[in-house]
Amino acid sequence: MKPSSVDYRNVVAALVVVGLLALPLFSQLTGNFFVLTLFTRIVIFSLAAVSLNLIMGYGGMMSFGHAAYLGIGGYAVGILAAEGIGSGFIQWPVALAASALFALVIGALSLRTRGVYFIMITLAFAQMAYYVASGLSRYGGDDGLTIYKRSGFAGLINLSNRVEFYYLCLFCLFGGVFLVWRIVNSRFGLVVQGLRSNEQRMQAIGFPAKRYQLVCFVISGTMCGLAGALLANNTDFISPAVMYWTRSGDLMVMVILGGMGSLFGPVVGAIVYLVLEEFLSQVTEYWAMIMGPLLLLIVLFGRGGILGLIGSFSRD
């Protein structure tokens, strides 16, 4: 029996899965519903972070505009609800399709460039989406849009029930992780990862680089649009603030904090980041003064994120 054969990263992932599954039970037993509310939010942002990790961690595409999809997915739900279409069977496909379309256009333009240009351009286009949403005076403009009724699924599931909604979010998250896992280990995923390490070589072999990257980009955006639809249902409200560029920054931080290019890294990152934010904001009003320098220190000293750190323990 060699203890070195255990990869602690898998242990952490298993603990996260069990913990998230058992959370409603814990909250029922202790009567602590705040935890459930907090973790519903965390699970939704985990899904967004997982989708970002697909292009950032595996594809090497540093998108700084991922919050745009949160907003687009959310606005699709909100606008349809405001126009009297309450069925989730219509709202959610529209949310996904709108996100996919936006990702297709933005991706096709942004992928013409590399590196730091890509970061800036995705940032700028997301900010454009933010301004457009602010200009939607019919749907609340800057003030946002209240969603009076959550998406209906013909009695199959009741989104207004806290526990049912939590498990729906969790189902989407696990589905997202599973999808990323399948993609990463497929031929398609291997090509995308190959493009990350050496685009020229991949092109020389004969792979159409842009096409692969664009498809990956669109999948990621669509997945994040789903997170947006969940988020709008969770808060019963959607406003341009959801796609403000600091949100995109938050998502990036979650991915890096947890460990870029690892399956459960973004989930761990989202949990740690949002719990830390919650904790610090209870300690002091000026929590960002602690969070900011903390980020700087993580960048300077903590390469590979939390899962990378844990992984380094299990190597010998």
């Binding site: 920054g249 969070m291 320098p293 980020l295 700087l296």
Partner: peptide, 14 residues
Amino acid sequence: HLDHVLATFGLILF
């Protein structure tokens, strides 16, 4: 560059 983005993002918060 990603490190730059994150670290200076932290500075903005600060």
